[in-house]
């Protein structure tokens, strides 16, 4: 499988108390388990089943994904700016891996 690539976006700075948008896009086949490969065999389900955003140690948003989420899952969600710090993203893969990445958000 191809390398797990991550693209993420948050505003450069955000005012305290403001709501800001967070976007992430990752590369993942999101095999839904209903398809057949060229060898005629069913391709087993392989998706990212959970996504979490942890802002300064506190989970601010979570999502359970099922097989209907498109290949290369994209998500846009929001958070309330409280203090400068890191937002950690966690993608829980069906194969047991947890892909982790983070961004720094500056609150002014």
């Amino acid at each position: 499988m191809a390398e797990f690539r991550i693209r993420k976006s948050v505003p450069e700075t955000v005012r305290k108390g403001e709501v800001f948008e967070i976007k992430t896009l990752v590369t993942h086949p999101m095999d839904n388990g209903f398809m057949f490969g060229r060898d005629g065999k069913r391709i087993p389900r392989h998706i990212i089943h959970r996504f979490e955003a942890i802002y300064n140690g506190k989970t601010v948003f979570g999502a359970d994904w099922h097989v209907a989420v498109s290949t290369n899952p994209y998500i846009s969600f929001h958070a309330l700016a409280e203090e400068s710090g890191t937002i950690e993203f966690r993608w829980h893969d069906d194969n047991g891996t947890v892909h982790v990445d983070s961004v720094y958000i500056q609150v002014i």
Partner: peptide
């Protein structure tokens, strides 16, 4: 630019 999955290939 954010959504385009082809941009991953460009980065690579």
């Amino acid at each position: 630019e954010f959504l385009n999955p082809g941009r991953f290939a460009v980065d690579h």
